[in-house]
């Protein structure tokens, strides 16, 4: 469990190099219902539950834009940011 803020942004301790661009995903924390599907399905463990159980991009550098998270989000709370 990371103590990152509940904005879905990558946590402070992540090794993500922001010079390359924004985080791979954007998470709509108001629509997210903390169902845990995206966290479980992510093959690279990019996401971790925050204290409300909602996903935070703990290891955004691992994201390969495989789409598994947002195609399975029942509430369209994840969009990919990849340029």
């Amino acid at each position: 469990m990371t103590d990152a803020d509940t904005t879905g942004k990558p946590g402070p301790q992540s090794k993500y190099d922001y010079s390359k661009g924004p985080a791979p995903l954007e998470i709509n924390m108001t629509w997210c219902k903390a169902c845990n599907i995206c966290i479980a399905l992510c093959p690279k463990q990019v996401l971790e539950p925050d204290r409300n159980g909602k996903p935070v991009q703990a290891r955004p550098e691992n994201c390969t834009q495989c789409t598994l998270c947002w195609i399975h989000c029942p509430d369209f709370a994840i969009t990919s940011n990849y340029k």
């Binding site: 108001t30 219902k33 903390a34 169902c35 845990n36 989000c73 029942p74 509430d75 709370a77």
Partner: peptide
Amino acid sequence: PSVWCPGCGNG
């Protein structure tokens, strides 16, 4: 978000 339970396949 929708009325469905968190994680419901309907979404």
